[in-house]
Simulated assay, not measured.
Amino acid sequence: MAASSQAARPITGRFVLITTVAFFAIVISVNMVMMRLAITTLPGTEVDSAYSASLAYQREIVAARQQNERDWQVQAHIDRRPDGTAAIALEARDRAGTPLTGMNFLARLERPIDRRADRAIEVSEAGLGSYRGHADGVAAGQWDLVIEGDADGRRMFLSKNRIVLN
Protein backbone atom coordinates (compact mmCIF):
# COMPACT_ATOMS: atom_id res chain seq x y z
CA MET A 1 0.00 0.00 0.00
CA ALA A 2 1.15 3.45 -0.84
CA ALA A 3 1.06 5.96 1.94
CA SER A 4 -0.73 9.16 1.25
CA SER A 5 1.68 12.02 0.92
CA GLN A 6 -0.89 14.46 2.30
CA ALA A 7 -2.74 13.95 5.51
CA ALA A 8 -6.42 14.90 5.70
CA ARG A 9 -7.06 18.32 7.19
CA PRO A 10 -8.68 18.16 10.58
CA ILE A 11 -12.02 19.91 11.10
CA THR A 12 -11.41 22.72 13.50
CA GLY A 13 -13.72 24.95 15.49
CA ARG A 14 -12.80 27.87 13.27
CA PHE A 15 -13.84 25.97 10.12
CA VAL A 16 -17.20 24.99 11.68
CA LEU A 17 -17.85 28.58 12.77
CA ILE A 18 -17.06 30.03 9.32
CA THR A 19 -19.24 27.49 7.45
CA THR A 20 -22.14 27.95 9.90
CA VAL A 21 -21.99 31.74 9.64
CA ALA A 22 -21.71 31.55 5.81
CA PHE A 23 -24.68 29.17 5.61
CA PHE A 24 -26.96 31.42 7.67
CA ALA A 25 -25.73 34.54 5.86
CA ILE A 26 -26.79 32.98 2.53
CA VAL A 27 -30.19 31.87 3.90
CA ILE A 28 -30.89 35.30 5.42
CA SER A 29 -29.77 37.10 2.25
CA VAL A 30 -32.04 34.99 0.03
CA ASN A 31 -34.96 35.51 2.44
CA MET A 32 -34.42 39.28 2.40
CA VAL A 33 -34.33 39.36 -1.42
CA MET A 34 -37.51 37.27 -1.66
CA MET A 35 -39.25 39.45 0.96
CA ARG A 36 -38.27 42.62 -0.92
CA LEU A 37 -39.58 41.20 -4.21
CA ALA A 38 -42.84 40.11 -2.55
CA ILE A 39 -43.43 43.53 -1.00
CA THR A 40 -42.60 45.59 -4.10
CA THR A 41 -44.73 43.46 -6.45
CA LEU A 42 -47.76 43.25 -4.16
CA PRO A 43 -50.69 44.39 -6.33
CA GLY A 44 -52.76 45.66 -3.44
CA THR A 45 -56.18 44.81 -2.15
CA GLU A 46 -59.57 44.58 -3.80
CA VAL A 47 -61.03 47.18 -1.44
CA ASP A 48 -59.24 49.75 0.68
CA SER A 49 -61.43 49.23 3.74
CA ALA A 50 -63.38 46.05 4.40
CA TYR A 51 -65.47 47.91 6.99
CA SER A 52 -66.58 50.58 4.49
CA ALA A 53 -67.32 47.90 1.90
CA SER A 54 -69.49 46.00 4.38
CA LEU A 55 -71.51 49.14 5.15
CA ALA A 56 -72.25 49.64 1.44
CA TYR A 57 -73.23 45.99 0.94
CA GLN A 58 -76.96 46.46 1.58
CA ARG A 59 -77.11 49.38 -0.88
CA GLU A 60 -75.43 47.18 -3.50
CA ILE A 61 -78.04 44.45 -3.00
CA VAL A 62 -80.89 46.97 -3.46
CA ALA A 63 -79.20 48.42 -6.58
CA ALA A 64 -78.75 44.92 -8.06
CA ARG A 65 -82.44 44.11 -7.51
CA GLN A 66 -83.49 47.37 -9.16
CA GLN A 67 -81.19 46.64 -12.11
CA ASN A 68 -82.74 43.18 -12.53
CA GLU A 69 -86.24 44.72 -12.48
CA ARG A 70 -85.29 47.17 -15.27
CA ASP A 71 -84.16 44.20 -17.42
CA TRP A 72 -81.89 46.30 -19.63
CA GLN A 73 -79.88 44.57 -22.33
CA VAL A 74 -76.37 45.97 -22.69
CA GLN A 75 -74.18 44.22 -25.22
CA ALA A 76 -70.45 44.97 -25.20
CA HIS A 77 -67.84 44.13 -27.79
CA ILE A 78 -64.18 44.93 -27.19
CA ASP A 79 -61.17 44.46 -29.47
CA ARG A 80 -57.48 44.99 -28.80
CA ARG A 81 -55.48 46.23 -31.76
CA PRO A 82 -51.79 45.33 -32.33
CA ASP A 83 -50.72 48.85 -31.26
CA GLY A 84 -52.21 48.28 -27.75
CA THR A 85 -55.37 50.31 -28.27
CA ALA A 86 -58.60 48.70 -27.05
CA ALA A 87 -61.88 49.78 -28.67
CA ILE A 88 -65.24 49.10 -27.04
CA ALA A 89 -68.71 49.20 -28.60
CA LEU A 90 -71.81 49.15 -26.40
CA GLU A 91 -75.42 48.65 -27.50
CA ALA A 92 -77.95 49.49 -24.77
CA ARG A 93 -81.68 48.72 -24.93
CA ASP A 94 -84.45 48.67 -22.38
CA ARG A 95 -86.83 45.78 -21.66
CA ALA A 96 -88.97 46.59 -24.75
CA GLY A 97 -85.94 46.80 -27.05
CA THR A 98 -85.97 50.60 -27.27
CA PRO A 99 -82.48 52.11 -27.50
CA LEU A 100 -81.31 53.82 -24.30
CA THR A 101 -80.16 57.35 -25.02
CA GLY A 102 -78.65 60.04 -22.84
CA MET A 103 -76.82 57.56 -20.63
CA ASN A 104 -73.35 58.17 -19.26
CA PHE A 105 -71.46 54.93 -19.60
CA LEU A 106 -68.10 54.43 -17.94
CA ALA A 107 -65.95 51.43 -18.73
CA ARG A 108 -62.82 50.12 -17.05
CA LEU A 109 -60.43 47.35 -17.85
CA GLU A 110 -59.17 45.97 -14.54
CA ARG A 111 -56.28 43.54 -14.21
CA PRO A 112 -57.33 40.69 -11.91
CA ILE A 113 -53.84 40.48 -10.42
CA ASP A 114 -52.60 44.07 -10.37
CA ARG A 115 -54.73 47.19 -9.84
CA ARG A 116 -51.85 49.36 -11.00
CA ALA A 117 -52.47 48.18 -14.60
CA ASP A 118 -56.17 49.22 -14.67
CA ARG A 119 -57.25 51.33 -17.66
CA ALA A 120 -60.22 53.66 -17.91
CA ILE A 121 -62.09 53.76 -21.21
CA GLU A 122 -63.68 57.00 -22.32
CA VAL A 123 -67.14 56.13 -23.66
CA SER A 124 -69.41 58.53 -25.52
CA GLU A 125 -72.74 58.20 -27.28
CA ALA A 126 -72.36 57.46 -30.98
CA GLY A 127 -76.01 57.07 -31.94
CA LEU A 128 -79.35 55.76 -30.70
CA GLY A 129 -78.41 53.35 -27.94
CA SER A 130 -74.90 53.01 -29.33
CA TYR A 131 -71.81 54.00 -27.34
CA ARG A 132 -68.14 53.85 -28.35
CA GLY A 133 -64.83 54.34 -26.60
CA HIS A 134 -61.16 53.43 -26.59
CA ALA A 135 -58.16 53.13 -24.27
CA ASP A 136 -54.46 53.20 -25.08
CA GLY A 137 -51.70 51.02 -23.67
CA VAL A 138 -53.76 47.89 -23.04
CA ALA A 139 -51.65 44.75 -22.74
CA ALA A 140 -52.80 41.36 -23.94
CA GLY A 141 -54.15 38.89 -21.38
CA GLN A 142 -57.01 38.49 -18.92
CA TRP A 143 -58.97 41.54 -17.84
CA ASP A 144 -62.19 42.31 -16.00
CA LEU A 145 -64.43 44.58 -18.09
CA VAL A 146 -66.47 46.77 -15.75
CA ILE A 147 -69.31 48.79 -17.30
CA GLU A 148 -71.31 51.34 -15.31
CA GLY A 149 -74.29 53.23 -16.69
CA ASP A 150 -75.45 56.43 -14.99
CA ALA A 151 -78.56 58.51 -15.61
CA ASP A 152 -79.31 61.73 -13.75
CA GLY A 153 -76.35 61.14 -11.44
CA ARG A 154 -77.61 57.74 -10.32
CA ARG A 155 -76.06 54.41 -11.22
CA MET A 156 -78.58 52.44 -13.22
CA PHE A 157 -76.43 49.62 -14.60
CA LEU A 158 -73.35 47.69 -13.46
CA SER A 159 -71.67 44.76 -15.14
CA LYS A 160 -68.35 43.00 -14.48
CA ASN A 161 -67.12 40.27 -16.84
CA ARG A 162 -63.81 38.42 -17.20
CA ILE A 163 -62.46 38.71 -20.75
CA VAL A 164 -59.29 37.76 -22.62
CA LEU A 165 -57.71 40.25 -25.01
CA ASN A 166 -55.21 39.02 -27.59
Rank of each mutant, 00 (worst) to 15 (best):
R119M: 07
A25F: 07
V138R: 04
T12Y: 01
N161A: 05
L165I: 01
D83S: 02
V123F: 06
L90R: 07
A135L: 03
V33D: 06
A53V: 04
G13W: 00
A96C: 01
R116F: 09
P112A: 06
M34T: 15
Q75F: 06
S5R: 03
L145W: 04
A50T: 12
I88Y: 03
Q58I: 09
G137M: 00
A25E: 03
L37S: 04
R95C: 05
L128K: 15
A76F: 11
E125A: 04
M103P: 09
H77E: 15
S4Q: 06
R65G: 07
S159R: 11
L100G: 10
N104R: 13
P99V: 11
S52Q: 15
T12K: 01
V21Y: 10
Q75H: 14
I88D: 11
Y57G: 11
A87C: 07
F24V: 07
F15R: 13
V146C: 10
Y51K: 14
T20H: 01
F157H: 12
M34S: 11
L165C: 10
M32P: 00
T85H: 08
T12V: 09
L55D: 12
A8Y: 02
R95V: 03
H77S: 15
S4V: 05
F23Q: 02
I78Y: 06
D83K: 01
N161C: 00
A120E: 13
S29C: 13
I88E: 10
V27Q: 10
D79S: 14
A89Q: 12
R116E: 04
R119I: 05
L42Q: 04
G133R: 12
W143K: 12
R108Y: 02
I163W: 13
A135R: 10
T19R: 14
E148V: 08
R9H: 02
E110G: 10
D94P: 10
D79E: 15
S5Q: 02
G129Y: 09
T101L: 05
S49F: 13
L109T: 09
I26T: 12
D79H: 14
